[in-house]
Design a protein around this nucleic acid. Structure first.
Lengths: 203, 203
DNA sequence: GTCTATATCCAGATAGAC
DNA sequence: GTCTATCTGGATATAGAC
């Protein structure tokens, strides 16, 4: 019964094991302090397989990067489709990111905390990624429609997502001890108190 | 005349040359992508001297880190001594950081952008540095005295310095094309519009 | 104290058996 | 497709002359 031998020890596919192992190591020790040998050991895979699937350490980092940014973009798209209001969209996205920070700190940490320019030189800055561009568009639309105060979109974007990013980073660093959800409601209240337009523009 | 031979080529002291060269390289290529050999060439110093002064690459990084964080702390202290108001203090500090971002992007980038945990494992998180702790204290005092709205200090801190940090990072990345000073006034207006307490507490 | 030349080590990558 | 064993380059760090 060769079948049994294959099934039990590693239910998840091989390339997936490599990615999850690498993600955790990159988060814990940083990209440069992680050797392929360590990834190989943690994923219980041979070095040869790693080079077969990803062509090397940088290939793993790229695969992780595009995959995770794609997932965040999907998240943004989902909230844009679900809600017409800019405020509701931002709240939904930030709320989802806060939740992910608790359940998948590796993933969020890899995107928010890693300095990708150090090991992915050909990739553009994070701000240029599609997911983050779309967040800016949400803010712009909210200002244009009068839902948010008339103001510089760059500043509005910094206030909304910059402060959220700061909370996420402090949570990842352990500076904030409680789950971010416990602060979510207060955070939104403070945020919109300053940004929401109380006198909506005429249609 | 041996004196002349010494004076002309390198007016600044040797260790200072090493630090400035390393700072620029770390910013441009990242810590791990910079070799001691490159620092040596750029600083026009021999490898032996580098090990004499700093004991190695990590020693340079540590010296830079403590020195720069010390300077920022001094900046915070200066503004705390000059102004009693929390809002004025925050504005002064952020304004100074914005100005530094334009004049010394290497320095600001090294503190705000580098992932120090990757190469200074024994150092605590940036948020624990004295300079940033004092910024939090300023915000707390502002809330306690009724100058700022009654709210969670962690959230207030994220809104104020998180958004400022976001602007600085985008400026360093080149996403923002104009000097930050051009947005400073608008930024402060938006910020305090949401955070300032319009009904001050009784003395 | 400053330099050059050298040693040592380890990471990333490859070759080839199975 | 997966593995083991090996190669190679380059980085940190040191030794010793001056």
């Amino acid at each position: 019964m060769p079948y049994l031998n294959r099934v039990v020890p590693h239910p998840e596919p091989l390339d997936c094991r490599i990615l999850t192992a690498a993600l955790k190591l990159f988060r814990d020790k940083g990209y440069h302090n992680t050797s392929v040998h360590e990834i190989q050991q943690k994923a219980r895979v041979s070095i040869g397989s790693i080079y077969n699937y990803f062509g090397g350490k940088e290939g793993i980092a790229k695969a992780l990067y595009t995959h995770i940014l794609g997932e965040i973009e999907q998240l943004v798209d989902a909230h844009m489709a679900r809600q017409p209001s800019a405020i509701a969209r931002c709240e939904g996205i930030i709320s989802a990111l806060f939740a992910h920070t608790e359940t998948h700190p590796d993933i969020i940490g890899y995107v928010f905390h890693a300095k990708h320019a150090d090991f992915l030189p050909d990739h553009a800055s994070l701000s240029d990624a599609a997911a983050f561009t779309k967040m800016k568009q949400i803010v712009c639309a909210g200002i244009a429609q009068g839902e948010l105060q008339k103001m510089d979109p760059v500043i509005a974007n910094a206030l909304i997502f910059g402060s959220a990013a700061q909370l996420i980073q402090q949570r990842l660093d352990g500076v904030i001890k409680e789950p971010l959800q416990s602060r979510e409601r207060d955070f939104f209240a403070c945020l919109w108190h300053g940004l929401k337009n109380s006198t909506p523009a005429p249609p």
